Simulated scan of single mutants.
Amino acid sequence: MFHIHQRFETLINIWARIASGVRSEREARLANPRRRCQDSLLIARLAELRSLEARAHQQAHDLRTLARWLERDVLALAGPDRATLQELFDFIVDELHQHEPEDPSRIGTMRRALQNQRDDLLAFAGVLDEKLDAIARATAVEGYLVRATCLLHRKPETSGAFWQAWNRLHAAMGRKFYDVYAAVSQAMNSTPRSSSLVENLNSRLRHCLTLRRHLNGSRAWLGLLQFFFNHRRFMRSRCSERIGKSPREAMTGHDHPHWLTLLGLGPLQPRQT
């Protein structure tokens, strides 16, 4: 989730900087007095720059709109069922495909990344659908009312719209509403949209794996990387028993020698004063 949003924001910022650069060039040409003697050339270039600036601004605006839809409507936990989310996801991919001719390399890369990861990004929706169906069967409540209770979590509790929807659902379900609301809240809290462990590992490996190109694909690099992560001690952790220990120490329960010794360089020599 984090990386796909980050890539989308990077693409938006690139096009915003393109628009800003075109505007700066246009203002610089207007401020240059030596250009006044070439009025016809200046007018033609200014018209070209205005058109390019307008297209860049529109491109950044459209991409920002698609990114907000993806974040708030498609990849949000409180949303419609998986089939509907897949249709919305495909719509965003199709819109990116229409903008792709303006920037085939960057927008095309973003479009392919979304298209290839659709099932993985929407995997949480299938899990949540099963939980909501189970709640509907257990409480003998219509499925659309359970889904509406899920969508209720999209609204802030301080808003009037939240309490209006709360009252409508309460009137439709009666006393069962409180049990349904509690069960839906628990189901949503136990359905993460991504694995924090995978995201953490991915963020650690992403930069390391890009450095292997100069090693001609040698497996020694992957072995060294595996050795590093297995023996690097945790500086901080939610589990207090892991702090100051490496993954190998945490899993085996035994201390290991210094990493230089593990690499076969012999035992550490005492410091000489």
Score class of each variant (00 low, 15 high):
L96S: 04
P257G: 04
G244C: 02
A67N: 04
H57I: 15
S237G: 02
E27P: 02
D255A: 14
D39P: 00
A28L: 02
P101G: 08
L88W: 10
C37Q: 10
S105M: 02
S24F: 06
M1F: 10
Q58I: 10
A148W: 03
H170V: 00
C37D: 11
R36G: 04
A182Q: 14
E157T: 12
E157C: 03
R26F: 00
R271A: 13
H99T: 02
E25W: 01
E157D: 07
G174C: 05
A187H: 04
R36H: 09
I43D: 11
L209S: 01
L169P: 02
I135G: 01
N167G: 10
L128C: 07
N216W: 12
L52D: 13
I12Y: 02
S185R: 15
L85Q: 10
R112A: 01
D90N: 06
D94V: 05
E27M: 04
I43V: 08
A31S: 06
W166C: 04
R72A: 05
S20A: 13
F227T: 01
V93N: 06
V180F: 03
A172L: 14
R248G: 04
R168K: 15
E102I: 15
L268W: 01
A182L: 09
H99K: 04
G223I: 03
H258C: 07
R204P: 00
A56M: 10
Q6Y: 14
F2P: 00
A31H: 09
G253N: 11
T139R: 07
L41P: 10
G160C: 07
T191G: 11
A67P: 00
D255G: 06
Q98Y: 12
L66M: 09
D90P: 01
S20Q: 13
A47N: 12
H207P: 08
G143E: 11
R35N: 13
E53H: 04
P192L: 02
T191E: 10
R232L: 02
A187P: 00
H214G: 08
S159W: 08
Y178H: 12
S190M: 03
P247N: 10
L205R: 05
L96T: 03
L145S: 08
L88Q: 14
S218D: 13
A171Q: 15
G253R: 14
R236Q: 09
L263S: 12
E100M: 08
H256V: 13
I18P: 00
G108V: 04
F177P: 05
R242W: 15
G217W: 05
M188S: 03
H214W: 05
R50C: 13
E102D: 13
F89P: 03
R175M: 08
L201V: 06
Q6N: 12
A183L: 15
P80T: 04
F177M: 10
H254M: 12
R137E: 07
R23S: 14
P247E: 07
A56L: 07
A76T: 07
R55A: 15
L128D: 05
E87H: 02
V198L: 14
T84N: 05
R23E: 15
A136N: 00
L132C: 00
D73H: 12
F228A: 11
I92P: 13
N216C: 10
A47H: 07
T109Q: 11
D129M: 05
R112F: 01
L42P: 03
A182M: 07
I243D: 02
G266Y: 13
